[in-house]
Simulated scan of single mutants.
Amino acid sequence: MAATKLVPLALSLALVSSASAQTASPPVVNLGQAPAADESAVVAELTVVAKPPGPAIWLVEKDGAKLYVLGAATPLPHSLKWDSPRLNKALDKASLVLVPPQAAVGVTQAAGFILTFGGGLRQPLGKRLEDQLPPDLRARFVAFREQARKGPGDYKNWKPAVAGFLLLSDFRQAAGLSEAKPVSTVERMAKARKLKVKSVGQYRMSAVTSIAGKLSPDDQLYCLRVALDEVAYDAAHSTTIGRDWAEGDLGAVRARYRESAGQRCLTHVPGGAALLEKGIAQTTDAMTEALKRPGVTVAVVDLGFLLPANGVLDRLKADGATITSPIE
């Protein structure tokens, strides 16, 4: 298994300018109903100025420091063209750009993980994935596999959970959806401005593969089901996924990103919730450190870390930061 295939698996299993003061108040867009118990109060209650176009951005301020947070949605269409005057202006003032945790994996590590955890991730000798699936799951898996232009041999040796997330990644690639965006786009924008780009941390592949290797047969099937549910969602919304995000339609984005397949799988299995908590805490710590430095920082944070109750923005506010939606 190539290292490039392990990275999406780890990350999956791992979230307008205003009118001038002399004009009438600018229109606002309410984000919808009051937050559910498991949703971020900061995200759900904050209103956002309707213009300019662009994805949701939050301005976090503390002790004179400014942190602009771009909520990242994955996947986005490779061909998506989007513009954000607020992000451009923030980058023009910034000296540092923070991006999500990266999976710590290389070719040597990938081979080591397969050898170390192969017994838990691979089918027993002589067994084939599709032969082991219940009829309903097998039918769904085969249908999506064929849409991804993959044959049965591409997944035959993997346990259901691993195969499900590999298929999700392959399906997105075949559908023209990118799991690297918008982070890769913001990194290019930062590079063009000669800004320092820093990851908020790393996910160790061993932590993810260790959990995957210990899944019970029922957990394996559950994680496969939620992965296939996300494939189905992506297939039905491939033309709107990017548009909703790029236009800052947080109502639609919230509905989709309340809990991804990776989150649903991880929170269902022993050790998974702790891994997700580590990601949120790691990101929050990096944001807190950024607010201790003078000047402006831009951070790209997965919506999966922003939307849950007690997510990154909630924790920053609880620590004394002021959070608004920038209108400049």
Rank of each mutant, 00 (worst) to 15 (best):
L228Q: 04
E187V: 13
A192P: 03
P217Q: 10
R204Y: 00
E247D: 13
D234Y: 08
V253A: 06
S206G: 09
R256A: 01
K196W: 02
L195S: 11
R204S: 01
V231I: 15
S216Q: 06
V197C: 13
V197D: 12
K191H: 13
T239V: 15
E259F: 00
I241W: 05
D234H: 07
I211D: 09
V186G: 02
A246K: 01
Y222A: 05
E247L: 11
L228I: 03
K194F: 06
K191E: 15
K196M: 09
V253Y: 03
K214W: 01
V200E: 07
M205V: 15
G248I: 01
A232E: 14
A212S: 12
Y203P: 01
L250Y: 07
E230F: 04
P217A: 06
L250V: 07
L228M: 12
A232W: 04
A227M: 10
V200L: 03
K198E: 14
P182I: 12
V208T: 06
S184G: 03
G242S: 10
I211N: 13
K191D: 15
S260W: 06
D244W: 15
C223D: 09
E247I: 06
H237K: 06
A261N: 12
D229T: 01
R204K: 12
Y233E: 11
P182F: 09
G251L: 12
A261I: 04
C223G: 08
A190L: 14
D249E: 09
R243K: 11
L228G: 07
A236K: 07
Y222H: 08
T240P: 13
Y233H: 10
T240C: 07
M205C: 09
P217N: 11
L221H: 00
L215F: 08
V200D: 02
D234K: 02
A235Q: 09
Q220N: 14
R256E: 05
C223F: 04
T185V: 14
L224N: 13
P217C: 12
